[in-house]
């Protein structure tokens, strides 16, 4: 009994130092599918369609990993997680990778014992206003009433921003995203502030989305990315390079539709390496050499994934902004594939 209690205590202590679970790759290969943690539903990022198939910007990261490891992007089992359950679910090994628009911060990376493998969306806090307010910059918001979710970092960022710019505002505290949306649409506040992707989703749900403008100022850094458990570096590398492959593919102009013809016509060595036609790169971490080809063919490059789920043709209509390749004015920059 005493031993049981001590071991329970030890388990609690080691909870945040994460159990070393080596061999996620072997587990996935023998199991035949990737276990991926996603949100319980977030417009554009993860949602089930009418037939129960999950799709979205975060979901496609999981599909890329499945395409790389198993050669089939449909071999993913999704576990829905909430903001509170996502970390314990990953730590306990119930999922292999968490792709749930999670901000990469120091303490999550270091203290919680996780490894962020990269950034798939650079988000940041922005401002949404009705277009008839006639405001073009957040610095013109002097005296505005601002809907803000209480107890969040966005609240602190907001206070800082207005103090630095020496303007005043009236905070309208709300509890949930739904509440903010209703308050904003009913005109009970002039401005709603949260992460820019969330604002785009809010505007998309308006009767007439054109009546709402996202102001150009982004006042915080919210790098969102997929993460894995500490300690299994091979698996971490696989997820990292699955994401990087999509980013490099866009840089090189490889898409799901042209990858076959590009491979046969190009003499760009990086394209050949990426698609497994030159060198033995996949086998370095235990995957087939054409893992990159499978990702591009089945899931697409980063730009395709962006456009399909959250880009200008979707109701969210998010601009590429920071999330454009470094060659096109953004900050997406993958280390070279060589």
């Amino acid at each position: 009994m005493k031993i049981l209690r001590i071991s329970a205590l030890l388990a609690l202590v080691t909870f945040f130092s994460a159990p070393a679970m080596a061999g996620t790759l072997e587990d996935v290969q023998s199991r035949g599918y990737v276990k991926c943690g996603v949100t319980t539903g977030l417009l554009g990022f993860a949602a089930p369609d009418d037939s129960g198939k999950w799709s979205g910007f975060d979901v496609d990261v999981c599909r890329a990993v499945a395409a790389a490891v198993l050669g089939d992007s449909s071999k993913v089992e999704f576990t829905t997680t909430t903001g509170k359950t996502r970390f314990p679910t990953l730590a306990s090994g119930e999922i292999d990778v968490l792709a749930r628009n999670t901000t990469w911060t120091f303490s999550r990376d270091v203290n919680l014992g996780f490894e962020f493998v990269g950034v798939n969306y650079y988000d940041g806090q922005g401002f949404l206003v009705p277009s008839n307010l006639g405001v073009t910059s957040a610095t013109q918001l002097d005296g505005a009433s601002v809907c803000i979710q209480t107890g969040t970092t966005t609240e602190l960022n907001l206070a800082d921003f207005f103090r630095v710019n020496n303007i005043s505002y009236e905070a309208i505290p709300v509890e949930t995203n739904d509440e903010s949306r209703e308050n904003l649409f009913a005109g009970r506040c002039d401005v709603y502030t949260t992460d820019a992707s969330g604002l785009a989703a809010t505007a998309a749900q308006a009767d007439n989305p054109a009546d709402w403008v996202l102001l150009p100022e982004i006042i915080s850094k919210e790098p969102l990315g997929p993460l894995v458990r500490h300690g299994d570096h091979v698996w971490g590398d696989i997820v990292r390079w699955s994401l990087n492959t999509m980013i490099i593919a866009e840089e090189k102009g490889l898409t799901s539709s042209n990858v076959d013809s590009m491979v046969s016509s190009t003499n760009d060595p990086e394209v050949l390496r990426l698609t497994g036609n030159e060198g033995e790169y996949g086998v370095m971490f235990g995957l087939p050499n054409d893992f990159g080809y499978n990702i591009i063919k089945q899931v697409g490059n980063y730009g395709e994934v962006f456009e399909r789920n959250i880009g200008s043709s979707t109701p969210l209509a998010l601009a590429r902004g920071l999330n454009a390749p470094w060659t096109a004015g953004g900050i997406l920059y993958s280390p070279p594939f060589r």
């Binding site: 749900q205 109701p315 969210l316």
Partner: peptide
């Protein structure tokens, strides 16, 4: 129900 609302096809 909430997940259905997160689908751009049916949102709002």
């Amino acid at each position: 129900g909430r997940a259905a609302l997160a689908d751009t096809k049916w949102m709002a």
